[in-house]
Each structure stands twice: as C-alpha cells, then as structure tokens.
Write a protein that binds this DNA or RNA. Structure first.
Lengths: 247, 247
DNA sequence: CGAACCCTTGATACGCTTCAACAAGAGTGG
DNA sequence: CCACTCTTGTTGAAGCGTATCAAGGGTTCG
C-alpha cells in the first residue's frame, strides 16, 4: 500500500510539517553533501534556514523530467533512481543515487527542467534548497559557492566517465569496472561487495539486459575473477579485474 | 609542419607574450562564455585581470588527462577535441568543443586531473583562468559564481543527454538526433547543416565506426529524410527526423 | 605521377538483444 | 496446509545491429 503514494507529489504539506526537523539536521549530513573543509557555524545556520526536508516512500516520484526545476535536490538517506518513466510501465533506470549525495544540483541554475525523472527506490529522506534562497545565501556566504562548484564538478567527472565507458567498453568491461568502483566504497572490505539493488537495475545502469548481466557474471566466475553468492560478490583478483576493465 | 607543434605544451612563454592581448578581449566573448545578464564593467575588468590567452596550432595538445588541473579552460575561437590520446596513434575523439565555449570548467575545482585529453583540431585561441585567482575574484564578485554554476549546469545537462542517447538509442537514432541538434545552431537556416568536421570524427562522437556512419547516411537518404552533397546536408523532413530520433 | 589521405561499399564475424522456457522464493487466499 | 500468482534470476536458441576486414574510387599534395 505504501509502495506508491500519490500524495508524494504534493510537497507543501509534508515539507511544512517537517520544517522543524531541519534544525535537527546534523552537521555531518551537510558536510557530506558540501565536501571541502569543515563547515562553520554561520554556514550551517545559513543552510538550515533555507533547507526543506521531505520523506518519501518507495515508489514515489521525486520530480519528473518536464517539471520546471526551482530547487537543488539532495538525498540524505535511502536510494533514489534517475531515469525515465514511460507510459509503458516499468521505470527505466539510468543511475541510482544513494544518500547522502546530490540528486540534481544542476537544473535549477539554468531555469530549465530536470532532464530526468527521479523515483524513490528505498524509503528516502530528501533535502531541497530553493535556488533563489541559495542565491541570496551565496551573496552573504561567498565561500559556499566554491563548495557547490566542486560538487557539480564531481558530477561532471562522473558523467564524463560514464559516457567514456559507454563509448569504448563492452559489457564485460563495464561490469568489471562497476564492481571495482563498488569495491572502493564497500564497507565489508575491498574484496567483498554487496549488490544493493536488483540485478535488473544494475543491468539497466550498465546499459545491458538482465540476461546479459547474468551471462557476464558467469563469465567472470568461470574465469576465476569473482565468486557469487546471491547478492554478495567476492572479488578474487582485483588486479585482473582492473586489467580487464581498462580500455 | 605546423600540424603538430611540440612547443604547444609549454604555455608560459606564449602566455606571457600574449598577456597584452587580454585587454583587447571583447565583451562579447566574455558574455558568450558567462551567459546570463550583461556583464558590468567591474566584472569585465576583474575577468580580464586574471585571464591568460594561448594561441595554438592544429594538432597541439591543450592538456592531457593525467595533468593536474589548475585552470578553467575555454575555447574562444577554433575547435578543440576532447577524447583520449593513445600510444597507439590516432586520437580517439569523444566530443568537440567549438569556441566560444568552456572546454573544462570542472576539473580545477576539485584539484584533480582533467579526465580527458584535449587536442586542437582547428587553429584555436584558448583562454585560461587560474582557479585560485578565480576564487579570489569570487570573493569580490559573488554574482560571478552564479554564472559559473549555470555554465557547469549546462555542461551537466549536455552530458546527461549524451549518456541517455548512448544507453537507449541505436546508431540511426543518434545520427538523426545529432543532425537535428546541429540544425538548431545552423547559420544557414534550420534545414541545411554544414558538417564542420571529418566524417570519421562525427562517427567517433556518435560512438560508431565511419563505415556505419556512411551506411546510416545512405539509409536516411533512401528514406527521403535528408539530401547529402559532400559536407552539406539538407534536412528534408524535420518532423520525421524528430520522430525517428525520439526514443 | 605516386603517395597519402578520405569516404564509400560489400562480405563476414561477433556482441548483445530478444524471445521463450524454467526454477526459486514471497505473498495471498482458499 | 497447499495451490496460486507474481516477481526475480537463470539458461538456451535465434536474430538484429554494428564492428571488422578488405577493396576501390576520389582528392590533394609533393
């Protein structure tokens, strides 16, 4: 019943209801979003003053691609998918964002629309900053601009990497690269990665079909590079995987 | 002989020699790079104070991908290719940037390296802003930050579109979309586009081989959608092309 | 004129998708 | 409790899309 909440698209009420929570938003969350040197008290206050929180259930839409973007949107916790919702049912995932991270830092600055649809995958807490309020804040906190530029720059680098992989790497290389990237952020050590989403969603992000993903996993298993047990993958030979992933 | 100038990688001398030129840089160039409302005199002065010009011949490298990025780099005029230079000879092009436009606005902010190699395709004039100088300038001209954010946001949108196309569109769709995009910026009217680069370079950016590009052009010609004469393409049915390009 | 490009065209090969079938778990209701 | 359905991942066979390889023609330039 809560997997698709129609009220999710009406932010006002819940945002107001949650406004009190903003003060409770820890400095660590802001720090994770804003990167750079430790945020000062003044900066944290300025941020908290203009932040709005939204809690959405799995399946809810965060924004849609034709929608005018007026806010910077971040995911505090949970996972949100960026992709395309088609009249033909299933949501076509292109990228998943797990908090804390920016979901759409770009669109609002150019007064355009979000170019992608965003859909909650795991019950998530979102943070929104009205871009006009941010503009005012930047006038008083010029150092904040630098943080935002750095965050968007990371975004650019990430996207550049994705396009490069799509242009030059085949399915096996992309999978190997994806596993290695996951292993770097893995909590269970560098050689065990937990697949945090359905395999079909992983496949969608790698721009292959679930069938091909299954076959590629078997390939890597046969080559002795990985060991698979359900949604846990052990990387047996990081060096060989890196060689394979390199273009 | 001037198609590959080894001195191109030594910026200091030529940058100093050209420093006097900076004052001559017209407001229109800055306006084209910075977008947004008209730049004030103070802003133009601040920009000119920290800008460095470089003129490079075709074939020269602007920067390489392992190189630490300390400057924001823009192309004033001419064309520069972003891609990968491999020990195996030919430069693999991923994107071409024609002036006036930013070439790498992101890398310097995160103190990383440019993720791509940049190579001059057409004799080009480049503009470089040391990121530390820009930081100082932003403290005095906070409105400038907003322009940079907007420029980088456009970059993000463009890259998002490219990845989407690579994920979901086949060669024919990508070519149709590319022709339509070119037609929007075309000087000779919306239905005639001049191919401004070698077809193999166009193919590289579409992530297909030159052979496939040739075949796809023939396909569109046979379908009556375009008319080709060398490097000039007439779009005979914009609506049909748009339908074809849509995913 | 040959040499070095570039684009084109055809034949073939390969990677990946599509389609179809099947097994395993999770939720549901009789 | 079992039958039923729904969803997910896996596997195999066939087919499409694009790359690769090889050859030929058109330019430009020394």
């Amino acid at each position: 019943m809560d997997s698709l909440n129609p009220h999710a698209l009406l932010p006002q009420r819940s945002a107001i209801a949650e406004a009190a929570n903003v003060q409770a938003l820890g400095a660590e969350s802001w720090q994770a979003l804003m990167r750079g040197p430790a945020l000062g008290d003044a900066e944290l206050k300025a941020l908290n003053r203009i932040a709005w929180l939204r809690s959405l259930p799995a399946g809810a839409m965060v924004f849609s691609r034709d929608q005018q973007a007026s806010k910077l949107v971040a995911v505090l916790c949970g996972a949100v998918g960026l992709g395309q919702l088609r009249h033909d049912q299933p949501f076509h995932l292109e990228r998943t964002v797990r908090g804390p991270a920016w979901l759409d830092l770009a669109s609002a600055w150019i007064g355009g629309c979000h170019v992608q649809d965003a859909r909650v995958l795991t019950p998530a807490q979102l943070l929104e900053l009205d871009v006009d309020a941010v503009r005012e804040m930047l006038a008083r906190q010029p150092a904040m601009a630098e943080r935002l530029l750095a965050c968007m720059a990371l975004n650019v680098h990430s996207l550049t990497g994705v396009t490069h992989d799509l242009m030059h790497k085949d399915a096996e290389k992309r999978l190997a690269a994806w596993l290695l990237q996951l292993s770097r952020r893995s909590a269970e050590g560098p050689d065990v990665v937990a697949l945090g989403e359905r395999k079909r969603d992983i496949a969608a992000q790698l721009a292959i079909t679930p069938e091909t993903l299954s076959r590629m996993m078997r390939q890597l298993k046969l080559k002795g590079l990985i060991e698979v047990q359900g949604y846990s993958v052990r990387l047996l030979d990081l060096a060989a995987l890196a060689t394979l992933a390199a273009d």
